[in-house]
């Protein structure tokens, strides 16, 4: 689909779409649900329930929340044992220490992977996910197969991500249903002792913090 946000922004701000350039540069017609979204938003703004600027600002907030934030916190926990302890005691306040604000009422429980325990996060009922620190969840996390099977056959699910967990390691599946959100603190990869905090953060992907894969060194042993 062609990039539409400029056209849509000008549509809702000026109320009129310029039909003069009816050639290939004209954006595609919006679908039914986009029309619904536009109409709901414009009606609520007209009736002063909120301002257009609030939507624009919240889009900026959402765009700024990516797994890189979680990666920074995890890397800090890997190198700083006292921060790690605070992170495990209260995930939200530890994130706030690093400037990651939580714009909702959720708490964050950090689940530590060890040589005896591997954690995995799911929301079977919907798509609860630690958005303030990881951004928006991937499609597979929100769709039925993952949500149905993670609580029934977590080892088979992990295998689909290429992760095999030995039988003597406990798998703990956390199903989010209420105000608490979860983040997995993956194990620091062996052989990473020489890496800087920034290089360590580069090893921490979104999927390591959901728990479907472990954090790994890059194939050639460095983090570049």
């Amino acid at each position: 689909m062609s990039s539409q946000d400029q056209a849509i922004s000008s549509t809702h701000e000026h109320g009129v779409h310029d039909h003069a350039d009816a050639d290939v540069s004209e954006p595609a017609r919006p679908g039914y649900y986009e029309v619904m979204e536009t109409a709901v938003r414009e009606l609520l703004i007209e009736r002063r329930f909120f301002e257009a600027g609030e939507i624009r600002h919240q889009i900026e907030v959402l765009d700024s929340r990516t797994p890189a934030l979680g990666a920074k916190v995890v890397a800090r926990a890997w190198v700083d044992p006292e921060f790690r302890a605070r992170f495990l005691a209260n995930g939200r306040t530890a994130c706030e220490e690093l400037g990651i604000t939580f714009y909702d009422d959720t708490q964050l429980i950090v689940l530590e992977n060890t040589e005896k325990v591997h954690n995995l996060i799911v929301c079977t009922l919907c798509s609860c996910y630690p958005r303030p620190v990881l951004g928006l969840p991937p499609d597979w996390y929100k769709l039925k197969p993952y949500r149905a099977r993670a609580v029934y056959e977590p080892r088979a699910v992990l295998a689909e991500f290429g992760t095999i967990i030995p039988d003597d390691v406990e798998i703990r599946v956390s199903d989010s249903t209420a105000q608490v959100r979860f983040l997995v603190l993956p194990r620091r990869p062996e052989g990473s002792e020489h890496l800087t905090e920034e290089q360590l953060a580069a090893l921490v992907t979104r999927d390591t913090m959901i728990g479907v894969v472990p954090a790994m060194l890059k194939p050639d042993g460095d983090a570049s």
Binding site: V151, D168, E170, I171, R172, V173, D175, A178
Partner: peptide
Amino acid sequence: YAGSSRDSLHIEVF
């Protein structure tokens, strides 16, 4: 359940 007998589920309940 076919996995390890150690495996567990954790959930918030009212």
